[in-house]
Amino acid sequence: MFTGIIECTTKVCKLNHDKKNLFITFINPFLDEIKINQSICHNGICFTVININIYEKTYSVIASEETLFRTNLNFLKIKDEVNLERALMIFGRLNGHLVQGHVDTTAQIIKIENRNGSWLFYFKNRKKLDYTIIEKGSIAINGISLTIITHTKYIFSVSIIPYTYNKTNLHLLKVGDIVNVEFDIFGKYISKYLKYYDSFIKRTILK
């Protein structure tokens, strides 16, 4: 479990395909603070560390076919910068919101507005935004805990302050880029319950 508060960014060193899996090697900014089997969130994707090279100061993870399908990893290139967050400590402060590191879908940046000190990012989602999103609710974009400003059926916007803009890879993104999206876990459970309840009511009435 994560909070969406990015610790730092790092760069991709190597990309190696093996059948339907993708092995990714990153520069290790945590030095000796991480270990094999540890979970780290990369651009919103929870990966398990499978190898650490202390001499090259790198570590590696593996992405499965499902992860490649759900996320923007197919656009990843050598030297790309990704957001990092280590797992939440059980007694730590929850500064953002609960983030699983399980990407739901991807969205495309369709507009970036400079608001004289902050930025408004507009995204077009791949699927209809039904009960999973509300204004002033939480959402994770590339692993960053953000607050939704506006939304329609497919488009939503978030406001970015200078600290977040400069500390994450948001300052490197442009219109047309694809980002990872994780909806609020509570919203997803409520959405599923409402769909089930609606279906149950319809079946009951028909009987």
Rank of each mutant, 00 (worst) to 15 (best):
residue 170 L to Q: 01
residue 150 T to S: 13
residue 175 V to L: 02
residue 207 K to E: 14
residue 145 S to G: 02
residue 117 G to N: 14
residue 73 L to T: 04
residue 187 G to K: 02
residue 159 S to V: 15
residue 198 D to N: 11
residue 76 L to S: 08
residue 68 L to I: 12
residue 155 I to A: 00
residue 170 L to A: 05
residue 115 R to S: 08
residue 160 I to D: 05
residue 3 T to F: 01
residue 191 S to V: 06
residue 201 I to F: 06
residue 160 I to V: 15
residue 203 R to T: 11
residue 169 N to W: 09
residue 198 D to Y: 14
residue 36 I to E: 13
residue 192 K to S: 08
residue 78 I to V: 11
residue 80 D to I: 11
residue 136 K to N: 10
residue 33 E to K: 15
residue 172 L to W: 05
residue 35 K to T: 11
residue 55 Y to A: 07
residue 116 N to C: 12
residue 199 S to I: 12
residue 87 A to P: 02
residue 157 S to V: 06
residue 83 N to V: 08
residue 45 I to D: 00
residue 71 T to D: 07
residue 75 F to H: 08
residue 80 D to E: 06
residue 160 I to L: 12
residue 98 L to K: 07
residue 95 N to H: 09
residue 6 I to R: 03
residue 15 L to F: 08
residue 78 I to T: 11
residue 51 N to S: 14
residue 190 I to Q: 02
residue 26 F to T: 08
residue 114 N to H: 09
residue 91 F to P: 00
residue 99 V to C: 05
residue 194 L to G: 00
residue 116 N to K: 15
residue 38 Q to M: 15
residue 124 K to P: 07
residue 79 K to Y: 12
residue 122 Y to W: 11
residue 96 G to Q: 01
residue 13 C to S: 10
residue 187 G to C: 03
residue 180 N to P: 06
residue 95 N to A: 12
residue 112 I to D: 03
residue 174 K to C: 10
residue 146 L to R: 01
residue 198 D to V: 09
residue 54 I to D: 11
residue 94 L to Q: 05
residue 163 Y to L: 14
residue 10 T to I: 14
residue 47 F to D: 07
residue 53 N to Q: 12
residue 83 N to A: 12
residue 204 T to I: 09
residue 76 L to M: 14
residue 59 Y to V: 08
residue 180 N to A: 06
residue 6 I to G: 01
residue 42 H to T: 09
residue 177 D to I: 10
residue 48 T to R: 03
residue 25 T to A: 09
residue 159 S to F: 13
residue 75 F to R: 05
residue 177 D to N: 14
residue 100 Q to P: 01
residue 47 F to Q: 12
residue 84 L to W: 06
residue 45 I to L: 10
residue 115 R to H: 11
residue 108 Q to E: 15
residue 122 Y to S: 14
residue 164 T to H: 02
residue 39 S to A: 13
residue 107 A to M: 07
residue 154 Y to P: 04
residue 141 I to H: 03
residue 85 E to N: 09
residue 81 E to M: 13
residue 14 K to W: 09
residue 146 L to Q: 05
residue 81 E to P: 03
residue 26 F to W: 11
residue 104 D to F: 02
residue 113 E to F: 11
residue 105 T to N: 07
residue 204 T to N: 11
residue 168 T to D: 01
residue 130 D to A: 06
residue 166 N to D: 14
residue 74 N to R: 11
residue 40 I to C: 04
residue 34 I to K: 01
residue 86 R to N: 07
residue 139 I to Q: 02
residue 176 G to R: 03
residue 185 I to L: 13
residue 67 T to R: 00
residue 164 T to N: 03
residue 55 Y to D: 14
residue 171 H to G: 07
residue 130 D to C: 09
residue 143 G to R: 03
residue 13 C to V: 12
residue 119 W to I: 07
residue 94 L to E: 08
residue 90 I to F: 06
residue 185 I to H: 00
residue 201 I to R: 07
residue 195 K to L: 15
residue 81 E to L: 12
residue 170 L to K: 06
residue 165 Y to R: 08
residue 160 I to E: 09
residue 41 C to F: 04
residue 189 Y to E: 13
residue 106 T to Q: 00
residue 95 N to T: 13
residue 128 K to C: 09
residue 46 C to P: 02
residue 154 Y to F: 15
residue 168 T to F: 03
residue 138 S to N: 09
residue 178 I to K: 07
residue 92 G to H: 02
residue 86 R to W: 10
residue 9 T to G: 04
residue 110 I to N: 04
residue 167 K to G: 00
residue 126 R to P: 00
residue 29 P to S: 04
residue 5 I to T: 02
residue 17 H to W: 10
